[in-house]
């Protein structure tokens, strides 16, 4: 088999690659959890075991988006927000970030500096320090790829993970879908519109939930593969089924227009500043009220619930998420198959 663009799409092909090559040889009890960030026990570094130290969270991500600058952001803002959001989703406070730059010859230094400035500003706003870096130059035509690794701290007693969802739990979505995907696609197709990437650091939303002492089961940023893929991954980890309502899922008029014309499905489109949280039913209203007060969660909604817990860990490949359509029909939502749109993040 050869690698195809589908292996980078964030859907089924990516998942199979993880399992069949990387997981096979790298596998260990930390990696095998396949969460957004790995959790490491810091007491390993101490002679005496100290209670209440919490965990160290670590996450790495590479960014290959074209174009490098787009309405609403650039690869610099994206590579900081993307990695830090992965830490946030595990309940971590992000602290440090490292960066590796692979630059193609011909890259304009003015452009590079704009991107580096954007990274510096985004990290500063997020309260994290950039503590290590590396550069390499390869042949090419002015492209740029960035890898970032983030380190954060998860306070003791915080248990957030994709396997925790239970029947009756509510699913909270922090806002409209499809902006980043639509923005990148519009730029590539030279379609002029007002769509901006939603690229953002989501600490206000995540912390609104945690500060309100909501017993968050799991959180995920809704990136590659879109809402449908993220929900299927969680449903698989938790051995459950989910039902969501299409009429409750917010879409901006411009994104709706673009997706209608191009035949795209917002359920599978990538976002860079949206997240979902699964929350116990009793705490859902309080959680929603907290999130709606934040800058990145103003349009938050409860879109559905965990409808069924499945016995054992049914290892079949069947889809576990059902969408109720606006006319009252039902549609099964599976993971993304194929590549979606290449080089989007």
């Amino acid at each position: 088999m050869k690698i195809t663009m589908a292996h980078g799409g964030g859907g089924k092909d990516s998942a199979d690659l993880m399992k069949n090559i990387f997981g096979k040889h790298f596998g260990n009890e930390i990696l095998d959890k396949m969460e957004d960030a790995a959790l490491v026990d810091p007491s390993l570094f101490c002679n005496t075991k100290k209670e209440g130290m919490g965990k160290i969270a670590c996450s790495t991500d590479s960014f290959v988006v074209t174009p490098l600058e787009f309405p609403g952001g650039d690869i610099g803002k994206l590579c900081v927000c993307g990695t830090l959001n992965d830490l946030l989703m595990m309940g971590a406070q992000p602290l440090y970030i490292t960066c590796g730059f692979i630059m193609e010859e011909g890259l304009e230094t003015d452009l590079l500096e704009r991107i580096v400035l954007s990274m510096a500003e985004t990290a500063k706003e997020a309260g994290v320090k950039i503590i290590a870096g590396d550069t390499k130059v390869i042949e090419g035509s002015g492209g740029l790829y960035i890898n970032t690794t983030g380190i954060g701290h998860v306070p003791s007693g915080r248990e957030i993970g994709a396997a925790n969802c239970k029947k009756g739990d509510k699913i909270l979505l922090s806002g409209t879908l499809g902006e980043h995907h639509s923005c990148i696609l519009s730029a590539r197709m030279e379609i002029e519109n007002g769509i901006r990437s939603d690229c953002a650091f989501l600490s206000d939303v995540a912390n609104a939930l945690l500060d309100a002492d909501i017993n968050v089961r799991t959180m995920r940023d809704v990136t590659r593969g879109g809402l449908a893929t993220v929900l299927n991954e969680i449903a698989e980890s938790s051995s459950c089924e989910m039902v969501i309502r299409e009429k409750d899922i917010p879409l901006s008029a411009e994104v709706k227009g673009l997706t209608d014309i191009l035949g795209l499905d917002p359920m599978y489109m990538a976002n860079e500043g949206k997240m979902i949280a699964v929350i116990p039913e009793k705490e859902a209203e309080r959680a929603l009220a907290s999130v709606k007060k934040t800058a990145h969660g103003k349009e938050a909604v409860i879109i559905g619930e965990v409808s069924e817990s499945l016995p054992g860990s049914a290892a079949d490949t069947a889809a576990r998420v059902t969408l109720i359509t606006p006319l009252g029909g039902t549609r099964v939502l599976d993971m993304l198959y194929g590549e979606g749109l290449p080089r989007i993040c």
């Binding site: 589908a6 089924k12 092909d13 199979d16 089924e241 035949g263 079949d316 069947a318 889809a319 576990r320 549609r331 099964v332 599976d334 198959y337 194929g338």
Partner: peptide, 27 residues
């Protein structure tokens, strides 16, 4: 025959009957 490893053409395309049925099949 699945969308990630299609045999017949109907499984290949986003508008092909088999691919659409597969993506929307019941658990």
């Amino acid at each position: 025959c699945r969308p990630d490893a299609p045999w017949g053409p109907c499984m290949v395309s986003g508008e092909g009957a088999c691919g659409i049925w597969y993506r929307n099949r019941k658990a």
